[in-house]
Design a protein around this nucleic acid. Structure first.
Length: 286
DNA sequence: AGCGTCACCCGGACGC
DNA sequence: TGCGTCCGGGTGACGC
């Protein structure tokens, strides 16, 4: 599931263009679009989408949260990879891929393929990118995201940390993997209430979030399931998908529970619940 | 209003 | 082999 580091990795590769993933998309003019599965188009209508995007030149590429933002001559093309999406530039005669549901054909030859096994991904064409990403929370790796600011944000809410961190309007870019990794680094229990953290704990969470994301970026993201993006962060998980494996810090077996309908991994020794939570947590584990 | 919970969309993996 | 179940990002419905 592409989260901030995976999406950023894709953005960098599409921007630079390398041997493995083809030429840069910057400067390419989209001659036409093939919509093999129109359900990919979130807005406007599939027909209108194809019309709006065709003939436009990609002048820039950026990221906001988990969205890729292609800057066009007029308006913006936004793509969300959701769980299984991937974007690759290929030659026109590259082998067919049954999961390449949306394909952007370049005037100069070559194509940008949006492959998406699960079909959860979405594409948008809008006049202003804000129409789609306007409600997102702050970018956790940008300078404006300080520990102080995080502290104020946490104080203003009264929720368990895990679902709050997954809320894209709270912070943009964290998904299930990096949330669990961040909480582990911060030594905070996933069910801990956001407004009960002391200053040291806020700072630990701030550092945990940033270190987990930066570590992911350094490894070019994680390649899990059948989606290979060149990254190897999956070999450096501390808790995610490591149920019953020893905690890298204390050796205690990592535990898997469900929080907010999401598989949640944590170390029961390093990430102890606050005393007021302990009873509730114990009950849910029996 | 804010929060928790659940269903939904998909198809591959996995257990029986 | 073939069935049922699980999984998840984001959204929207619903109830408290």
């Amino acid at each position: 599931m592409p989260e901030l580091p995976e999406v950023e990795t894709v953005v960098r590769q599409l921007r630079q263009g390398d041997g493995e993933r083809g030429a840069s998309v910057i400067g390419q003019t989209i001659a036409r679009v093939t919509l093999r599965w129109p359900g990919h188009v979130a807005r406007p209508s599939p027909r209108e989408f194809a019309r709006r995007v065709s003939g436009q030149t990609i002048t820039g590429l950026s990221r906001r949260g988990k969205y890729l933002i292609f800057h066009l001559t007029h308006g913006f093309l936004l793509i969300h990879l959701k769980m299984s999406g991937d974007l690759v530039v290929m030659g026109d005669h590259a082998p067919r891929d049954k999961h390449a549901h949306t394909v952007f054909h370049f005037r100069a030859g070559g194509q940008l393929r949006f492959t998406d096994t699960r079909k959860f991904g979405r594409v948008y064409w809008v006049e202003h990118a804000q129409e789609v990403v306007g409600a997102l929370g702050p970018e956790p790796l940008e300078p404006g995201f300080t520990a102080r600011r995080l502290g104020e944000m946490l104080k203003a809410r009264h929720r368990a940390l895990k679902p709050l961190l997954l809320d894209q309007t709270f912070i943009a870019g964290l998904g299930n993997i990096y949330t669990d990794e961040a909480l582990n680094r911060a030594r905070l229990h996933p069910l801990r209430r956001s407004d009960t953290l002391g200053p040291q704990e806020v700072r630990a969470l701030w550092r945990g979030i940033r270190q987990a994301l930066q570590s992911g970026l350094r490894h070019n993201g994680a390649s899990i399931d059948w989606v290979y993006r060149g990254g190897d962060f999956q070999n450096h998980f501390r808790v995610y998908d490591r149920a019953d494996h020893p905690c890298v810090n204390c050796g205690t077996p990592i535990r898997r529970t469900v929080v907010g309908q999401r598989g949640t991994y944590y170390c029961p020794q390093c990430q102890k619940p606050a005393t007021s939570l302990a009873k509730k947590v114990k009950e849910s584990e029996l």
